[in-house]
Amino acid sequence: MLEINNLHVRVGDKTILNGINLTVKAGEVHAIMGPNGSGKSTLSHVLAGRAGYEVIEGSARYQGKNLLELSPETRAHAGVFLGFQYPVEIPGVNNMYFLKAAINARRVANGLTELDAFDFIQMAKEKAKLVGLDESLLQRAVNEGFSGGEKKRNEIFQMAVLEPQLAILDETDSGLDIDALKIVAEGVNALRDPDRAVILVTHYQRLLDYIVPDYVHVLSEGRIVRSGGRELALTLEEKGYSWLKEAAAT
């Protein structure tokens, strides 16, 4: 589904990603862990198409296409979803209004008919229930005045509505209490499917207690320095990120 090859990315004159190699197949859940500043968020944003990042080398192919040359909306139409670490507040833009426009833009791009208001609302209400998002938030402006936890739930809610093929969740667990974390995890688990893949970007292994990954990768200074299974996350938890440096030094 996703093949990243030797990806080098620069922001301004600072190189952030230094040759990332990663292959994600349908049905898999990959966790990407790493200390602050290791390039985790840059990787997420580059995959989703945010402006301001310069790819200086390497490639990223998604479903056989050159992902990096597609606009953010084209990536979304092809099934890529980014759950933001810090979802932006958008005053004056109603959550439901926006989401209906988003889902219909995607349906139209994929040659499907638009959902009518009634079907959309029914579906949205079901999904809101699934991720424990208070229905009253649906009619509010996007993320405006939401608590940290509500913003993250809103991300998972949008993911549930949009049903992406490839979900990239950028520190979706940060700032969540344990109950919210469980709900977010349930939302992600409900999406797990042989045709879909998930990339979980996280600083802590706690989230991986609830969403069990197939692979864990450790990112450091813009490179994947170690890959392994679930146990790698536990080792990291136990020994800390400094262990990596010591391991690298020896």
């Binding site: 989703a48 198409g49 945010r50 402006a51 606009s71 953010p72 909306e73 990536r75 979304a76 139409h77 979803f81 980014l82 933001f84 979802p87 932006v88 958008i90 005053p91 004056g92 833009v93 209004y97 926006f98 989401l99 426009a101 988003a102 889902i103 833009a105 995607r106 791009a109 402006a141 996007v142 949008q158 949009l162």
Partner: peptide, 23 residues
């Protein structure tokens, strides 16, 4: 970027934000 990453074409995203500014 947030709106586009969810699938809104750029011009629609701009329109929606502009309307949001006035709302």
């Amino acid at each position: 970027f947030y709106l586009r990453s969810r699938g809104l074409p750029e011009d629609a995203a701009r329109g929606l934000l502009t309307l949001g500014f006035a709302r």
